[in-house]
């Protein structure tokens, strides 16, 4: 990956992190859009699995710093999601919007499952409701937002050759 492409990817990543800490709390939805997962997924498909794991770990640690009671859970979930996305990136080489949406959906859902499991705060019905109801809804919102952002950021992430 050239320096220009790396800089553009970093720019897009930073933009998504900013959105996560501005748009998300402003909207305040019960099923929030997770811009951090989108950022990690978009980065992961452009780097090797080890780097993707590291990006996920750092991003998760930043997110965990605001939730000390679940410290480490986000880092673990982001590491897993980032590394897996990087290994599976061949699947998503196809330039298909629906496939990308599915990619974001699965990524966010997997993140939530790992997160709530590692957090060990929810049990029984509450855990099931979170994993089977709220997480898929949040994943769907994230998928829609991810596809929209991907279409908007395409000129930045994949510039056309002059």
């Amino acid at each position: 990956m050239s320096w220009t492409r790396s800089a553009r990817a970093v720019l897009a990543f930073s933009l998504l992190v900013l959105l996560h800490y501005t748009i998300r709390p402003f909207l305040g939805w019960r099923t929030p859009v997770d811009f951090l997962v989108i950022a990690v997924l978009l980065s992961a498909v452009r780097v090797r699995p080890g780097a993707a794991a590291l990006i996920g770990f750092c991003t998760g640690l930043v997110a965990d710093s605001l939730t000390p009671s679940a410290f480490g859970a986000g880092a673990l979930a982001m590491t897993a999601v980032g590394a897996t996305a990087s290994w599976l990136k061949a699947v998503f080489f196809a330039d298909n919007v629906v496939l990308h949406g599915f990619f974001f959906f699965v990524g966010k859902w997997a993140f939530d499952i790992v997160y709530v499991t590692a957090e060990r705060r929810m049990h029984g019905v509450e855990l099931a409701t979170q994993i089977l109801l709220w997480s898929p809804l949040s994943a769907a919102a994230t998928a829609v937002a991810g596809v929209v952002l991907l279409l908007m950021l395409r000129p930045v992430l994949e510039p056309q050759a002059a």
């Binding site: 590291l54 410290f71 480490g72």
Partner: peptide
């Protein structure tokens, strides 16, 4: 290298989840 990085990240994340509360709070703070 990828595997080592992944394992290292996972181990550190797992360690973070089991750290004492005051230590977790110190790092988060």
């Amino acid at each position: 290298v990828d595997t080592v990085l992944l394992v290292a990240c996972c181990v550190m994340a797992l360690l973070a989840t089991v750290l004492p509360l005051n230590l977790r709070e110190a790092i988060a703070g």
